[in-house]
């Protein structure tokens, strides 16, 4: 099975970041994991690699509630970027919120691949990585 090249975890929760990274390493399905603790950092990372599609993330796991730039603001800014044709970036919202209003908000962004409510178990992570999980 081929590995996912670049995965970005955008979440200010250090424990979540650590747990996800550990799972990734154990599953051995990811080449590189990039850690960002707010939306702005992640956005800057993407902007600086727009010329180099190989380095752009293939999968982004995005928290909603973050300082400086939250998940929704990130999505708004992301929609304005011109991602190189042929590059497919899957973005999943990963949130602890079960509120209908958040789910509703997610529907405003067609570029989202899915909305997942934490906690995320090992099996869910595997599905995310092999791309079988479609919401």
């Amino acid at each position: 099975m081929s590995k996912v090249k670049n995965v970005c975890i955008v979440d200010d929760d250090e424990l979540f970041q650590f747990v996800m990274r550990q799972h990734f390493e154990r599953l051995d399905l990811v080449e590189r994991v990039h850690k960002f603790t707010d939306g702005e950092q992640a956005l800057n990372h993407i902007k600086s690699h727009l010329e180099n599609p190989e380095e752009l993330p293939d999968l982004i796991l995005l928290d909603v509630n973050m300082p400086y730039m939250d998940g929704w603001q990130f999505m708004t800014e992301y929609a304005r970027l011109s991602i190189p044709a042929g590059k497919h970036i899957r973005i999943y919202i990963l949130t602890s919120s079960t509120h209908e209003s958040d789910l509703q908000k997610a529907r405003e962004f067609p570029s989202l691949s899915g909305y997942l409510v934490k906690p995320i178990g090992k099996n869910m992570i595997r599905e995310l990585l092999v791309g079988a999980e479609q919401h």
């Binding site: 424990l15 979540f16 747990v19 550990q22 602890s96 934490k118 178990g121």
Partner: peptide, 23 residues
Amino acid sequence: SIIAHNLRGPATALMGSTELLQD
């Protein structure tokens, strides 16, 4: 909203880490 994000957030992370702990 505080419960959804600021309490459920770290609580779910703790939950997730229990699964990891044994590995």
